[in-house]
Design a protein around this nucleic acid. Structure first.
Length: 595
RNA sequence: GCGCCCGUAGCUCAGUUGGAUAGAGCAUCGGCCUUCUAAGCCGAGGGUCGCAGGUUCGAUUCCUGCCGGGCGCACCA
């Protein structure tokens, strides 16, 4: 979408810089990365750039002087784009665009619709995004919910930016944790049948274990008591993990999260992939036997020490499986692997980076996004969760309480690597204080406006049908500029792997919309009342007071709504609605027509 | 002890990869509905960007050292 003003400015600057370089006016050895940003203050124009300052050392001239030259050239060469280019100390270029440029933003939104905001920066690079991947040893809890919301939003934002994304869930269905699950279930099973023999040391304590035991009693009666303990444990583990995985799938599907691939760890063992990975590492002398165990030499790639991959007793550690798993993923030909992990696993990153490098891929092939913990607040108090006692709030409970939309939005309101306080009361509240309602309401409010407009016989105009002057009033222009920023936000969220930027953007856009909506009418009032007659003399005057300051609400009621104004506003607001809808969609949140 | 993350308004947090005079929401206080959804808007107060150095035209942002908080440091996952 290079037709957008910001890209046009960047292209213009780049082009002019090249030309000045070739003609010898500026002696450039290399062109700096041109960053066009939106300045904080309106006096600094629509966009600004620091190129002149970046160039100063290279060209050996004062930034202000370079700025002057550039500003002059740019204005001369691109008169349709710039209405002015200023140089501000210590050397900023401030661009003020020809207002007409903004119209094409509206046209672009109108034309691209659902696709507005998409780009091709990803160039079709293939990304494997692995997230949630909770062990099937218990139900999903809130922390997993945050990972799920983040993963999905990341996938959406990356896809919108031209990456080809596949989502994967790694099922940890082998190893000690699963055994422990089997032991825990069997222990409960025995207890319930009056044959209790104690509970495993680090067993799973949650009530769901008892429910699974009940289910086993229903289907198998007391049959498991006759089996050898090991076999009974294995059977319990299989049954329990199948049940729990099924429950995880249900929760995720209710949360609106889907995966292309569900990858099972057991498969790695059974297909010999772990053995293969080991053979390869041995060949490369990255796997060494010491003290009867096999060590992965991760320290050669910057890890602080080597790690055991195969224990003295011959069994594999979880690391062995993960090494093989990452080799498996790399072998599928992705350009980048992204893992969304709980922040408590951060110490594990160097190990996995080592594995990736051991197989001949650059370290950057693997990107890990860390998700910090979630605390739930109710009545201003933290809801206590203790993993040891098996007391944690499940994702399902949160969904029951606040619904998927609010849950997702709240999970995405903070940067992933900072701790999140999730206020359950706020998430349920139907007021402007609740950010998700606030944004959704903006969308619904517009939907409602359009319904009323159509009931009253207005048709919703296309941009081309509207008189330009009425689109370019100050506040309308403000809205358009905000809309123009949207594609940059989507791209930034994708490249930085930070979807929370989109959440913030939507709140800002909604705020601007609500303010606008409150201040300006779109449709003329239905009936002429005595009050409007009594102020008619004032409101009909062609000159509006400059800035009424404290009299803004009065401006609202006295504003004259011609049919040109109505259609211009309808046209702009439709594009606002499109952008809100698109943004919410990328976050996985619905955009309701009615609330 | 070592490593990673965090420290910005009373609270919860943004800060566009190093830019110009530091931003939002909540909370507090004061206003706005006979007219398109008040699930909304307008206004006010509130800051040593943890501290101290360094890098440069310029630092909340990068580097070093402290202080404070969280997490991790298994032949568990």
């Amino acid at each position: 979408m290079s037709g957008l003003p910001q890209s046009q400015v960047a292209e213009a600057v780049s082009f002019t810089l090249n030309r000045l370089s070739q003609s010898g006016v500026l002696a450039l050895s290399s062109q700096p990365g041109i960053v066009i940003e939106s300045p904080k203050r309106p006096e600094w124009g629509d966009f600004s750039s620091n190129v002149a300052m970046l160039l100063a050392s290279q060209v050996r001239q004062a930034p202000m002087k370079i700025g002057e030259v550039l500003a002059g050239e740019l204005q001369r060469e691109w008169p349709h784009l710039f209405s002015r280019v200023d140089v501000a100390s210590p050397g900023f270029l401030n661009f003020t665009l020809n207002p007409l440029c903004w119209i094409q933003v509206l046209q672009s939104i109108q034309e691209f619709g659902l696709l507005f905001g998409t780009s091709r920066v990803g160039k079709g690079q293939r990304i494997l995004l692995e997230f949630v991947s909770a062990n099937p040893t218990g139900p999903l809890h809130v922390g997993h919910g945050r990972g799920a919301a983040l993963g999905q939003a990341l996938a959406n934002v990356l896809q919108a930016s031209g990456f080809s994304v596949e989502r994967e869930y790694y099922i940890n269905d082998a190893g000690r944790q699963l055994l422990l699950l089997g032991q825990s279930v069997l222990a409960r099973y025995r207890e319930k049948l009056g044959k209790g023999t104690g509970f495993p040391e680090d067993g799973y304590h949650g009530d769901y274990i008892k429910e699974i035991a009940d289910a086993l009693i229903r289907t198998r009666q007391s049959a498991l008591l006759d089996l050898p303990a090991e076999e009974a444990e294995r059977m319990c583990a299989m049954e329990a993990s199948a049940l729990l995985l099924d429950r995880i799938r249900q929760d995720l599907s209710r949360f609106g999260i889907g995966f292309e691939i569900w990858f099972s760890e057991t498969q790695l063992h059974e297909s010999g992939k772990i053995q293969q990975a080991f053979d390869l590492l041995r060949q490369k002398h990255l796997l060494e036997q010491r003290d009867g165990a096999w060590w992965f030499c991760s320290s050669r790639f910057g890890d602080e020490k080597d790690r055991v991959a195969q224990k003295q007793d011959g069994s594999y550690t979880y690391l062995a499986a993960d090494i093989a798993y990452h080799r498996e993923k790399l072998g599928r030909g992705y350009d980048t692997l992204i893992n969304v992990w709980g922040a408590d696993h951060h110490g594990y990153i160097p190990r996995m980076e080592a594995a990736v490098q051991a197989f001949g891929f650059p370290k950057e092939t693997l990107k890990v996004v860390l998700v910090q913990m979630v605390s739930l607040l109710r009545g201003g108090q933290k809801v206590e969760m203790s993993k040891r006692a098996g007391e944690f709030v499940t994702l399902r409970e949160v969904l029951d309480e606040v619904g998927p939309d609010a849950a997702k939005f709240f999970f995405l309101m903070r940067r992933a690597d900072t701790h999140l306080d999730f206020d359950l009361d706020l998430a349920k509240q139907q007021s402007a204080d609740n950010p998700v309602y606030y944004v959704q309401y903006a969308h619904a409010r517009l939907a409602s406006l359009f319904r009323v407009a159509q009931d009253r016989g207005y048709h919703l105009p296309r941009i081309e049908e509207v008189k330009t002057d009425f689109l370019l009033q100050e506040e309308e222009l403000g809205l358009i500029k905000r809309l123009a920023h949207y594609p940059t936000v989507v791209e930034g969220s994708a490249v930085a792997l930070e979807p929370h930027r989109l959440t913030f953007y939507l709140q800002e856009l909604a705020a601007q919309l609500h303010a606008y909506y409150n201040r300006h009418r779109v449709l003329p009032p239905l009936s002429v009342t005595e009050r409007s007659e009594s102020t008619e003399g004032v409101s009909e005057s062609s000159e509006f007071p400059e800035e009424p300051e404290s009299e803004e609400s009065r401006e609202h009621s006295s504003e004259k709504i011609s049919s040109d104004v109505t259609s211009a506003r309808l046209a702009i607001l439709r594009q606002v609605q499109t952008v809100i809808r698109n943004g919410l969609t990328l976050l996985g949140v619905s955009a309701p027509e009615k609330m």
